[in-house]
Design a protein around this nucleic acid. Structure first.
Length: 298
DNA sequence: GTCCAGGTGTTCC
DNA sequence: GGAACACATGGA
């Protein structure tokens, strides 16, 4: 660990809601601290804050290079209007878009994203955050933080996880997910799947490859594909989205999950994953389940 | 104490 | 093909 420095930059943005983006269950390592957000990307500690007049202020404690990695992660160059323009014109989605204006889909590291969602099954987001944090604390590498700041760790690599035993992972309170995370890490480490090559496949091919991993079904595959591989049409269907789709589009009926998945694939269009994230975050906002937005009315 | 959580894998019909 | 259940743990 090198000695800490202080590097800063400003991103000019339009329609960017940092809180909605970082606290909408896409990524699990951002903490709200003193009016900003702090996390670790790769091996860099990062602090983000809203600036004035459509600015995001970014700060690191180690040399950031050209900041391209952070622009890409935050998707600050994505045209939000263009994305929203592809959405179907329906009242419920329109309301979610208005309520969460500025919510973006991040572009995360594929391994951290996939591993985090393997740990997500039948867990509340608050617990996922705790488990992921514990995995990093135990098995990640310490990263450079500002002087006097509390410690921070990177997310452990595929190889590090693959070299652990199930019992090591169970110590992070992940329960039965330990064998899934370990099995997936080992499969990737021995070359059964090229995570970085997924983006060059079609959505169907990439999904088909991912669901061969233990503990990875369609929902978790779609999370990884949407949040880290740039597949904007991937549409993760979890319990929140199931409820939402039933309420909005099939009132009084009781469609099976497979029917809703098929409906969503057609209805929400080529960037349906973004629409999904608006529906998901809006539903959680209304239910009072977003800690950073407790004061937002229903 | 009961229900449920950004699911998946297995078993049984 | 699809319903029922197991799987760990802890928040609400």
């Amino acid at each position: 660990m090198s000695s800490p420095g202080d590097w800063r930059t400003v991103f000019r943005v339009r329609d960017y809601d940092l809180a909605a983006t970082l606290d909408s269950g896409q990524a699990f390592r951002w903490d709200a601290v003193n009016g900003g957000w702090e996390g670790v990307l790769g091996r860099r500690w990062v602090r983000l804050e809203d600036g004035r007049r459509g600015e995001i202020l970014a700060r690191t404690a180690s040399d950031p290079g050209d900041w391209g990695w952070l622009r890409r992660y935050l998707a600050v160059d994505e045209d939000l209007e263009g994305i929203v323009a592809t959405f179907p014109r329906d009242a419920a989605l329109g309301e979610a878009v208005r309520a969460c204006r500025g919510l973006r889909v991040l572009r995360q590291d594929p391994w951290e994203c996939l591993a985090s969602f393997i740990l997500s099954s039948t867990k509340q987001i608050v617990q996922i955050r705790r488990i992921v944090g514990e995995v990093c604390r135990r098995y990640g590498e310490r990263v450079t933080v500002p002087r006097g700041h509390e410690e921070a760790w990177s997310f452990p690599s595929v190889e590090v996880i693959a070299g652990l035993e199930e019992g090591d992972l169970r110590r992070c309170a992940m329960g039965f997910r330990a064998k899934y995370l370990l099995g997936s890490a080992r499969a990737i480490a021995r070359g059964d799947l090229d995570l970085d090559g997924l983006c060059r496949l079609s959505l169907q091919e990439a999904r088909g490859a991912l669901v061969k991993l233990p503990g990875v079904g369609r929902k978790i595959a779609d999370c990884a594909l949407l949040f880290s591989c740039g597949f904007d049409g991937a549409f993760p269907v979890d319990v929140w989205i199931l409820r939402t789709l039933r309420e909005i589009y099939f009132p009084g009926a009781d469609p099976r999950p497979a029917e809703l998945v098929a409906f969503a694939e057609v209805h929400f269009g080529p960037r349906g994953g973004h629409a999904q994230q608006y529906l998901f975050h809006h539903a959680r906002l209304r239910a009072g389940r977003v800690a950073s937005a407790r004061s937002v009315p229903a």
